[in-house]
Design a protein around this nucleic acid. Sequence first.
DNA 1: GTCTACATATAGAGAGCCTACATGTAGACT
DNA 2: AGTCTACATGTAGGCTCTCTATATGTAGAC
Lengths: 111, 111
Amino acid sequence: MNTDALRGHMDALLLSVLEHEPLHGYAIIEALQERSGGVLSVPTGTVYPALRRLERIGYLDSEWATVGGRRRRTYRLTEAGRKALAGERSAWQTFAGAIGSVLLPRRSPSP
Amino acid sequence: MNTDALRGHMDALLLSVLEHEPLHGYAIIEALQERSGGVLSVPTGTVYPALRRLERIGYLDSEWATVGGRRRRTYRLTEAGRKALAGERSAWQTFAGAIGSVLLPRRSPSP
DNA sequence: GTCTACATATAGAGAGCCTACATGTAGACT
DNA sequence: AGTCTACATGTAGGCTCTCTATATGTAGAC
């Protein structure tokens, strides 16, 4: 389960994972996989550029840390990012509702 | 509500709309809009090429008709398209479930 | 000495959705 | 007669993002 279907939803996923705690890229990938019950395996070549893009547009900021001899870049949500997350969430609900109602229409209830 | 978010889900939408009756492009666009409660306004430049693509890979076939002096190309689901639709539906449910569980986590239930 | 896990990054390809434009009929209104 | 809107299909080109593949390096286990 892993096509281009993610397109347009990565931002929401990344912002959401960072909502309650700052994380570095590698940990974000693990968090996505864990939170989605193993469904979302997002490759590093997707996540790292996306994080930089989100930083560039002001939704994240980052700082370097060294833990156990390894360099990490830790990302945290900005205020703008927090607002964007709220927007992304409601957009997702609208979107998923719309797709759902086309794809999985409920039988008309007994009259 | 109309970004690139549709990417990867157009096939499912089109196949689904054609499940119970053949329709021509223009009518498909209207059906999508109606079924989604006005949320999905898919431009013609998206739908017509997508329909041709689906026909090329064997999920649809089409024939021309003239109704009230206007030419229509009516698309109908093939057997392969019907199978693909089933796959798209379950893929959507997996996908939406995964995104949902990342984006809208339920608070842990009282222990 | 090698392998795996941890950790980040970039280049290039590919897919497909969107904007804009082109074309044409039918019917209503002025 | 002329214009406007709804109906109806189609293509070209741009753009953005995701993915694959590759590169680099540390730490710890075996």
